[in-house]
């Protein structure tokens, strides 16, 4: 796990986002244990309360679950949940932005689509 903190977001959100990334990329596979609050706190010199707050955010989102006396585990279907979530965000953030920019450039929907297709081919 590699944390890369920037200062724009509250720290607990950054902690949650980093763990979420790790789950999504498969670094923390479904059903496996997530490092404990203390471990994360120690490793990155973050206040345990902050880490816990970030962890609770993930619990609320149903990505990790607490198993009493054992610790935090990645839930079944967590990856799918994240993917779903990010797809929704993809539309509301990126696509909306893309369309707004395209309209300013007087690009039609078809033209944008073909540009997207070209992007896909070049990204291979």
């Amino acid at each position: 796990m590699q944390f890369d903190f920037n200062s724009t977001d509250p720290l607990y959100r950054q902690v949650a986002a980093q763990i979420e990334d790790a789950i999504f990329s498969g670094s923390f596979s479904e059903g496996s244990q997530v490092p404990s609050t203390t471990e994360i706190s120690k490793e990155f010199h973050i206040n345990p309360a902050t880490v816990l707050k970030g962890m609770n955010l993930l619990v609320d989102q149903g990505l990790v679950e607490k198993r009493r006396g054992l610790g935090m585990f990645v839930t079944r279907g967590a990856q799918e949940t994240i993917r779903e979530d990010r797809r929704n965000q993809f539309f509301s953030n990126d696509v909306q932005k893309l369309v707004a920019e395209a309209k300013q450039l007087a690009l039609s929907a078809d033209e944008v689509l073909s540009l997207v297709k070209r992007g896909y081919e070049e990204h291979e």
Partner: peptide
């Protein structure tokens, strides 16, 4: 030191 601080604090 920072690690131990967190450890003992928890």
């Amino acid at each position: 030191f920072y690690r131990e601080l967190v450890e003992t604090y928890t």
